[in-house]
Amino acid sequence: MACELEHGPPGVFECQLCSLTAPYSYIGQKPPDTESVILLEESYIMKDPFTANKDRFLVLGSRCSLCSRLVCVGPECSLFYSKRFCLPCVQENIDAFPREIQQDLEKRKVPAKKPVNKPRP
């Protein structure tokens, strides 16, 4: 089968925890087309797909500063506290984090998403 080379995105980002995938267009701390923002971590970035503004970007994820796993920025997978930490690493070292973060994680565990109506298969 003939496949044409994809233009634009240099690759596809995939979260190693939740396997969310999205094409990224840039890795680094200085998103292209924006001048006034600097990122505090090496991030995988795409153009914000939900707006026509060219200068709006979306950070997809980055590597965990402890285990270097590539994780998305979703709250189920990682958190940022001056550095990126994947949730498994946070759990492992929970005591090293301030109480606010600990409480945050506690809160997150309790209201596990309950399915409203289970569709018939």
Binding site: I38, L40, L79
Partner: peptide
């Protein structure tokens, strides 16, 4: 209570006192 003693050196430089600002991964010029 402040932070417990970090078990891993990589966690040693975490800010001691919590501020929501530290949870934001970007900075504005």
């Amino acid at each position: 209570p402040g932070l417990a003693k970090p078990p891993i050196p990589a966690l040693a430089d975490l800010p001691r006192t919590y501020d929501p600002r530290y949870r934001i991964n970007l900075s504005v010029l």
